[in-house]
């Protein structure tokens, strides 16, 4: 149990440092325009990575069809301009039904 508490404390400290370092050091200085260009594209690149990471897992060990179908449902329903919660509910229903069928 002590090991768990130490790990939690160290991870919290590391997390704080990772987020704090750049803003604390950079201060009020604006970013160079080239950096802004790259940063503007960080969101789609990271989000795509997060979706893939959630769907596949390390070594693609947690790849599963129901989850992928659910994510596709969320994206498909978004094209109809439904609000996000409705899209999520649709994804949950499709995933649950697919889980039940397999």
């Amino acid at each position: 149990m002590t090991t768990i508490w130490i790990c939690v404390a160290l991870t919290a400290l590391a997390n704080f440092a990772i987020k704090a370092t750049a803003p604390a050091v950079l201060g009020n200085r604006p970013l160079p325009s080239r950096a802004k260009g790259v940063i503007a594209l960080l969101a789609p690149a990271l989000l795509a990575g997060l979706v893939i990471s959630d769907l596949l897992g390390p070594r693609w060990s947690s790849a599963n069809g129901p989850l992928a179908l659910g994510v596709l449902t969320a994206a498909a329903t978004r094209t109809t301009r439904l609000p996000a919660p409705a899209c999520i509910i649709a994804a949950v229903i499709v995933t649950a039904v697919t889980h039940a069928m397999l």
């Binding site: 979706v51 659910g70 978004r78 999520i88 949950v92 889980h99």
Partner: peptide, 24 residues
Amino acid sequence: LNATGLDVVFPAFFALLLFDEMRH
């Protein structure tokens, strides 16, 4: 949690955010 489909909540929400970003 998995049987009720709730395991999809987080990746689905990231997918929605991604979808909106890709419109830019």
